[in-house]
């Protein structure tokens, strides 16, 4: 297990290193960017930039200093706003985004798994078809369209939910649903096919031969095994929710990190884009690692196989 985790950690660091390096050198090459001579910024920002990036130093010193800053969790100043750093933005926006993300993660997993199980247990019956039509719709609609439509009908036309902003739990429902729609559809499909596969396994026949009822077989033997691929999907799922949040937060006027990121893209606030990207990458890689470790605990085969090697 230990060895497994350290190996994963190593890959994670290498991926992270790659993305930090790529963003750094792309930024250096960006015309009109922080490193270019023809950039047009107020002197105050110029000063901040110089302090953080050491603009007059050779590139390898700049690069090395940048790596050190990132390691110290310092993502640098904004390219557009005086007195604002990327860390400020993260501290302010991320808690909001985190809450929204967790809420939609919960919705996506619980409803998705439930739909998938119902569909598999009623394979080729109407419940199956209904759940799968729902799921195919879910993965066919881009999130910004889904969000706009939900907002238009449920909030503006019907008035069931607040249209926008981030004030009460009520305000979170619609954005969380919009954000959860696509991952939920993916999970439903994944659970269904995994459940169908599990139900065809020999050990299900064994359970039946023991005289267990369909309900007992489903609960005790099928679901636990069918859920394993869903757990491995949690890594990509967090990436989906994260990138989805850019769009959703923008549409619903939520002051999260996602909408700040989109604003910085529109403003070409290069240093903010760079810093937030690195932060997001760390976040995603960490969640993938967490999922991997969690999987090791859920699947006894991995835990022990890794354990023997690890000691």
């Amino acid at each position: 297990m230990l060895r497994y985790i350290s190996k994963r950690l190593l890959y994670m660091l290498m991926s992270l290193f790659l993305i930090v390096t790529v963003t750094f050198f792309l930024m250096r090459a960006a015309p009109g960017g922080p490193f270019s001579s023809e950039k047009q910024v107020p002197p105050e920002i110029e000063k901040n930039l110089n302090e953080y990036y050491g603009l007059d130093r050779p590139w390898y010193i700049q690069y090395f200093d940048y790596l050190v800053s990132i390691a110290k969790w310092d993502f640098g100043p904004s390219f557009k706003y005086k007195g604002q750093t990327v860390n400020d933005l993260i501290n302010e926006g991320f808690p909001v985004s985190f809450f929204l993300g967790m809420e939609s993660l919960l919705i996506a997993i619980s409803i998705g798994v439930l739909l998938g199980i119902i569909a598999a247990l009623n394979h080729n019956k109407w419940q199956d078809y209904a759940a799968m039509v729902f799921a195919v719709l879910g993965i066919s609609v881009p999130s910004f369209i889904m969000a706009s439509i939900l907002q238009y009908f449920l909030a503006i036309k019907l008035g069931w939910f607040p249209v926008a902003r981030w004030e009460s739990l009520q305000h979170t429902v619609l954005p969380a649903l919009a954000l959860a729609a696509m991952p939920m559809a993916f999970i439903a499909r994944l659970t269904r096919s995994s459940m169908l596969e599990v139900l065809g396994n020999d050990y299900i026949r064994t359970a039946k031969a023991k005289g267990l009822s369909q309900g007992q077989i489903t609960v005790k033997h099928a679901i636990r095994n069918a859920i394993l691929p869903v757990v491995t999907y949690l890594g990509p799922l967090s990436a989906q929710i994260l990138t989805g949040s850019f769009v959703i937060e923008k549409i619903f006027g939520i002051p999260g990190l996602g909408s700040h990121f989109v604003t910085s893209i529109t403003n070409r606030d290069y240093t903010t884009i760079m810093g937030v990207t690195v932060f997001y990458s760390i976040l995603l890689l960490l969640s993938v690692l967490l999922v991997d470790i969690a999987y090791g605990f859920i699947d006894p085969r991995i835990k022990l196989a890794g354990g023997k090697k690890g000691e």
């Binding site: 050990y203 031969a209 005289g211 033997h221 085969r301």
Partner: peptide, 28 residues
């Protein structure tokens, strides 16, 4: 019926299958 069979399977009739590698639940 299926319910009646549940009382017979495993109690009156036991069964062993060909492939012991796949016939047991790996996570139990």
């Amino acid at each position: 019926t299926d319910k009646e069979m549940e009382q017979i399977r495993g109690r009156d009739i036991g069964m062993i299958f060909q492939d012991p590698m796949t016939s047991l639940n790996p996570t139990m």
